[in-house]
């Protein structure tokens, strides 16, 4: 897939796509309240930019095409917004979106790699970066130019295995490895700063040898520019983009609430949002 130029048109198209994905994610959650809504809404623009902005090269007809870029979705349960994206890209029929969490569907409350387009198991947190580092090492040994993206939440960085992998990636100069942190600053029981702070995350990753940038994770234009720059950089360092986001973004009563991870908006509220002409939110 050739990379489209970063024109204002592309940015506008990404904004429209993000809005659509945001609505579809709400729609899925309305049908399947077992899904994690808030942590999926914080990552909408991240995934839309990765998958529609020419960053993650995919081949829906052959999901394990060796020429694809590998995108490891480490924040497994917080990626329900990937369902409409993968359906739209043609990984599976859009009709499957009607069956999330139903018997016989492969679209569960937590995504698993039985879903076309998912690479690894990430229902358990903190595994994506290590596996992604192993993939990046393999690709470098094979002189492949494909990129590896790992999308994780900030909360899962409490898992120490991430930091083992972070040291490893810089030691081996895995400069095709790109980590995107959905930095919504909230895990299940509250704000990460009140639990065990990860601040200053950028400095911490940098001290582990990573090339880090930080952007507004809901600003598609900023994400697109930063991710393109990140993907193109091959200077002997792994790279990280810290995306400042809001958990539950765009849903009043949910957005940035410390317990948003386990909060479900009332069905009537979701219905009202989806019934509004512009669909609510400002994604």
């Amino acid at each position: 897939m050739p990379e489209p130029a970063p024109t204002p048109d592309l940015v506008a198209a990404l904004v429209a796509k993000a809005h659509h994905v945001w609505r579809e994610t709400l729609r899925i959650h309305r049908r399947a309240p077992e899904t994690r809504l808030a942590s999926s809404l914080s990552a909408v623009e991240i995934f839309v930019t990765l998958y529609y902005g020419g960053l993650v090269r995919t081949n829906p007809a052959n999901p394990f095409d060796p020429e694809r870029d590998r995108c490891i979705i480490s924040k497994g349960h917080g990626s329900i917004c990937m369902y409409p994206i993968l359906a739209d890209l043609g990984f599976f029929p859009a009709a499957e979106l009607e069956r999330v969490c139903q018997a016989g569907s492969f679209l569960g409350g937590i995504p698993d790699p039985v879903i076309p387009g998912y690479e690894t198991v990430n229902g358990s947190l903190g595994h994506g970066l290590g596996v992604g580092a192993g993939i990046a090492l393999a690709l470098s040994r094979k002189a492949s130019t494909r990129s590896v993206f790992v999308v994780c939440g900030d909360g899962e960085l409490h898992e120490g295995a991430n930091w083992e992998a972070a040291m490893f990636a810089s030691q081996h100069r895995l400069d095709h490895l790109n980590l995107i942190v959905d930095d919504n600053r909230i895990s299940m029981l509250g704000r990460t700063d009140d639990i065990v702070t990860l601040s200053p995350l950028r400095d911490r990753l940098a001290s582990f040898g990573w090339d880090c940038v930080e952007v507004d994770g809901h600003d598609v234009a900023a994400l697109l520019a930063a991710l393109r720059d990140l993907k193109a950089r091959h200077a002997g360092q792994p790279k990280a983009l810290i995306a400042r986001t809001l958990k539950g973004r765009g849903v009043p009563g949910l957005e940035d609430m410390p317990l948003s991870h386990v909060m479900n908006p009332p069905p009537a509220q979701i219905d009202a949002i989806l019934a509004a002409p512009e669909g609510g939110g400002d994604a």
Binding site: G130, G134, I135, L137, A138, A161
Partner: peptide, 23 residues
Amino acid sequence: DRFVNVGIAEQNLINVSAGLALE
């Protein structure tokens, strides 16, 4: 090129091995 010491880090040993095996 095909020997890696991950250090005293068994969790990463497994995950890196998994990544290599996937490729």
